[in-house]
Computed example of a mutant assay.
Amino acid sequence: MTIVRLGYVAMSVHLQNCSPSQTMTFAQFQKIKDREAAIKKLERIAVSNLQNCLRLLKHNKAHDIRFFRLSSRIIPLANHEELADWDYIEPLRETLREIAGFLKEYPMRIDFHPDHFVLLNSPEPEILKISLKTLLMHEELLKGMNIDSKHRCVLHVGGGYNDKEQALEQFIHNWGYVPNRLQQMVMLENDDVTFTLQNTLYLCEKLAIPLVFDLHHHLANYENEDWKPDWERIVATWKHSPLPLKMHISSPRNEKDFRAHSDFVDAQMFMKFLNEIKGTVEHIDCMIEAKQKDEALFRLVEDLKHYSEIEFVDGARFYVH
């Protein structure tokens, strides 16, 4: 028997005017002649984004959802070189404290998936530097919400740079330049184009990083289509984590556009996976990556109720027998 907790990504299709990713481009910033006024506008956008995150967390509570990925675009231009002197966290502290208070009353697994430009295996020192600055921003947000930052940021391995083996070794080389507290934040995910499950396991086992298994990515990009022989190795990468094993679930849009995410999750495909792994772990957290966000979660819950081996605990958690 295994308990499964469902989560979804960043925003709701049900809540109106609740984007956590409102933005401002640097071109727009430059058009405001008064720099101080431009920064104040940036701060208002960031505060609004964070307040919308709190609305989303309250929405999750109403539906028993205790697993959620926050947007990584809460603070526009946070790492822009022209704004290096901007203390972007200070204006957010009050709202961050509100979120911390809410999460104390309603504990929830919160994490991030920083954007694709965070490349820890880049051979370019400047790109690595910006990537570390981005991780520092995520650490500041987690600290402000009073969340232990260990294993809260999912990353892809990075770029292939026309030599995948060298790119893997570059990751190991660069890892030495990542401060220990930022290393502790990182989880790695197998991707759908370059780094397979086996490639990612190589790094995770060597560097003691938890592996977030993405089944859809694996089916799009694999060395061995059958992931089951490697399942115990995936589980073992979590042995040093205070958090339960995490995976991503999504379904292909169609056979032609296989890598793209569908609006919803194919319950039959998900059940096939669950029946393979039930009993091998006590608890698994499944992050739904679907275009319809929370509606995809609600739809999946309704679909799963038709399976006799599923026993729901509440609106977003169930046992699989």
Rank of each mutant, 00 (worst) to 15 (best):
R44L: 10
M247I: 15
E105Q: 15
K41D: 05
A220N: 12
K40C: 07
L141P: 11
M287G: 04
M187V: 04
F171C: 08
N190K: 08
S241D: 12
R55C: 05
C286K: 00
Q51S: 11
L155A: 13
V118Y: 04
C18G: 15
H217Q: 07
K206C: 07
V178W: 09
Q166C: 01
M108W: 04
S19E: 08
V157S: 01
S19L: 13
E295W: 13
L304D: 02
D285I: 01
K239N: 12
C53I: 06
K228M: 13
E282G: 11
E139Y: 12
F312R: 02
L188C: 07
Q268W: 01
I249D: 09
H116D: 10
F171D: 03
R35F: 13
T95G: 06
D314T: 00
V320H: 09
G144F: 09
N79H: 09
Y106E: 07
L155R: 14
F318D: 06
N79W: 01
D64F: 07
Q28T: 01
A10H: 08
K278V: 00
A38H: 00
K246R: 14
D87N: 15
F102V: 02
F258H: 05
L201C: 08
G160A: 14
D111M: 14
E43Y: 08
D226P: 03
L201Q: 06
E309N: 10
K40D: 13
P252H: 07
I65C: 05
F318V: 09
E139I: 00
G101C: 07
S21T: 05
P125H: 05
Y222T: 08
I74R: 04
T23Q: 13
L128D: 01
T134H: 01
D314S: 12
